[in-house]
C-alpha cells in the first residue's frame, strides 16, 4: 500500500512526513483478524503495533468468573498497542477482535530500530503516540469520575 493511502487511514500517522510514511508503508502488513481472535495478550512481548482499517478491537481484562471486563473499544483509524513503544515492551491488556477486523500491522523492532537511527522519525512518531496516549488518559480520567447515574457496583 502507498504511504498516501496509509496517511488517510489514521490521525496517528497523518502528521508524519512523507519519507517517514514511506518507511512505514514499506514494512506494513495487512492482517485479517477473525471475530473473537486475540490480537495480543496480557504480558506477551510487544512485537508490533496496529492501526485498525476496519472493524472493532476491545482491550479486555479476563476475570476469574464470567465474561472479561472491557476497558475500552477501538475502531477505525485507532492505534492498537502502546506498550511496544517503551520498555519493558510487554502488553498490559489483552486485545481481541470484537468483530471481523482488518488491521495494518507494523513490526515494533523494525520501527524502534529506525526511530533510534532516524531521530526525526522518532520525534514525529513518538509525538503522535504521545497525543494518542494523552487522549486515552484524559478520557479514562473522565470515566474514572463515574459521572453517569446508575446502580452502584
Amino acid at each position: 500500500m502507498s504511504f498516501s493511502e496509509l496517511r488517510n487511514q489514521s490521525a496517528v500517522l497523518a502528521a508524519l512526513e512523507d519519507e517517514h510514511l514511506e518507511f512505514l508503508s514499506s514494512i506494513v502488513e495487512e492482517v485479517e483478524i477473525a471475530q473473537d481472535s486475540v490480537v495480543f495478550d496480557e504480558d506477551d512481548s510487544a512485537e508490533a503495533f496496529y492501526i485498525i482499517a476496519s472493524g472493532r478491537v476491545g482491550l479486555e481484562v479476563p476475570v476469574p468468573t464470567g465474561t472479561p471486563m472491557l476497558l475500552e473499544t477501538l475502531g477505525n483509524g485507532d492505534l492498537v498497542g502502546l506498550s511496544w513503544a517503551s520498555e519493558p515492551y510487554r502488553w498490559k491488556w489483552r486485545a481481541k477482535a470484537l468483530s471481523p477486523t482488518r488491521v495494518y500491522r507494523f513490526d515494533a523492532e523494525k520501527v524502534r530500530a529506525r526511530c533510534a537511527a532516524d531521530t526525526s522519525l522518532g520525534a514525529q512518531l513518538y509525538l503522535s503516540i504521545a497525543k494518542a496516549a494523552m487522549m486515552r488518559l484524559q478520557t479514562a480520567r473522565v470515566r474514572l469520575l463515574d459521572l453517569y447515574p446508575g446502580a452502584p457496583g
Binding site: R56, G58, E60, G66, T67, P68, M69, L70, L71, E72, T73, G75, K96, L98, T139, V142, R143, D146, Y148
Partner: peptide, 14 residues
C-alpha cells in the same frame, strides 16, 4: 458505556 464486559455490542469509552 463506561464499563462493560466483552459480550457488549457497543463501545466502551467516553
Amino acid at each position: 458505556v463506561d464499563r462493560a464486559t466483552s459480550d457488549w455490542w457497543g463501545h466502551v469509552g467516553l
